[in-house]
Amino acid sequence: MHIVVCIKQVPDSAQIRVHPVTNTIMRQGVPTIINPYDLVVLEEALRLRDNYGGTVTVLTMGPPMAEDSLRKCLTFGADRAVLLTDRFFAGSDTLATSYALTAAIRKISETWGKPDIVFAGKQTIDGDTAQVGPGIASRLNLQQLTYVSKINGVVSDKNQIEVERRAEGGIQVLVSTMPVLVTMIEGSNEMRRGTMAAALAAAKAEIVTWSAADAGVEDMTKCGLRGSPTVVKKVFAPAARSEKAFQLPVAGKPAEEIAALLLEDLFQRKPAIEDELMKFASGQ
């Protein structure tokens, strides 16, 4: 079985700070990580390979420094890593991103065999769109299985895969025919740790690096800013409400007094809430 896992190196959003005066992102010193949702599917890919045999190819599009994330994936146990990097890709929106990744997956297909499963993270923590996975599926005509909570099994000789998928109000159990594109929800599994030996090997491993031309991208006008139908017109911080919060005078008071102050203030602002609470309390 050949499995391709698409990952993205993202800034650790927990550590992003916005400059209070200029409202610009302060990137300096913000560490990058592998998008956490990508690790969920990478782990699943490694488990499937361990159970059914085959290889796992990890693919990312990004700047040259995204190589670090790929090496981490090799440490975890991926068999090979491909970096798609080209200045033409800069500023890609999700449509342009899925176009470029699709070209690379076709090239991977020609080079190492057709993938049975393409995995993508449910969404990234920087863009949060959840659109690139479905974009790849549409372009490659793969069956699209998103928000999967569990892969029940794979029947390789019949190309069949059975999954449980988080749907609105319940779980859909689906059976499909590979090749498929799968995204998975958090909590499905936990990433294994790589060994020191694997880390050392990964540090020396070859990272296959492709430019747009190397990957066989046919139409450069579909890449990067030019290929992106969406345009960011403005980036801004939201204004504070005209009035800041009314601060209750709590300084130096014990917790009991603070609580009493809040109750009084709340019931004054929202008399109806007191009635509702009474109703709730008497209903118990």
């Binding site: 800069a90 890609s92 969406t230």
Partner: peptide, 23 residues
């Protein structure tokens, strides 16, 4: 939606800023 820049770019976060004025 423009994802966070994939390649090094000057002056983030003006992602797509030069195109914004393009009519």
């Amino acid at each position: 939606m423009t994802t966070a820049p994939q390649a090094p770019k000057p002056a983030a976060p003006a992602a797509g800023g030069n195109r914004a004025t393009m009519k």
